[in-house]
């Protein structure tokens, strides 16, 4: 029986959600040899600042490219979590940035709130890598793509010379989940 894992990455334009969607899909398909689809919002959808990317990962064929039963939702804004939380399946995961999301709607999912952007600014000194920190947390909580594959995909995607910063950000993201006291599940 093949598995199917659906991830939605949501937030505002400029938060690099499309990029991490691409990284996740490439990591799964190229380096972990799974099947994947990735879609993204653009044009009028992105107008007003919203941004969304979806990744579906499977070890079998993917016949249906749309995410309908979400396993993991990353919400980098309050609007995003309000809009998409209801689509997360029972037992699914929601990750939010505590700097931007005050409240997660109640539901039968595991919610994790991490200071993603804050860490990007304070530890790395670059707000722009908040998306990669979130990717580290996604890797730990989903366990659907290997960290090696994601690191390879990061290296292939980010501009030359910035690999080390991005890999460092990814590790910070992983550490957020490893470090139990920063995990604040709420249901």
């Amino acid at each position: 029986m093949s598995f199917r894992y659906e991830i939605r990455l949501s937030g505002a334009g400029g938060q690099g959600l499309i990029l991490i969607g691409k990284i996740l899909a490439e990591a799964a398909a190229i380096y972990d040899e799974k099947n994947a689809t990735q879609s993204q919002s653009y044009g009028p959808e992105a107008r007003g600042g919203a941004s969304r990317s979806e990744v579906i990962i499977s070890d079998g064929d993917i016949d249906y490219p749309k995410a309908t039963n979400i396993d993991l939702l990353l919400a980098m804004t309050q609007e995003a979590v309000d809009k998409y939380a209801a689509e997360v399946k029972d037992g699914g995961v929601i990750i939010t940035d505590s700097g931007y999301v005050r409240e997660v709607p109640k539901g039968k999912y595991k919610a994790y709130s991490f200071p993603i952007t804050e860490i990007a600014e304070e530890k790395i000194g670059k707000k722009i890598v908040a998306n990669i920190i979130a990717l580290g947390a996604i890797e730990r909580l989903s366990q659907v793509v290997s960290p090696e594959a994601i690191i390879n995909a990061i290296r292939a995607r980010v501009p030359k010379g910035t690999e080390e910063t991005n890999i460092s950000a990814f590790k910070y993201g992983q550490d957020l989940v490893k470090n139990e006291e920063t995990v604040t599940p709420s249901a």
């Binding site: 190229i30 040899e33 689809t37």
Partner: peptide, 17 residues
């Protein structure tokens, strides 16, 4: 779906908007 898998392996992300 089968084509999708092979295109992906080349490192190009197919989008079916």
């Amino acid at each position: 779906s089968k084509m999708n898998r092979e295109i992906l392996k080349r490192g190009v992300l197919p989008h079916y908007r």
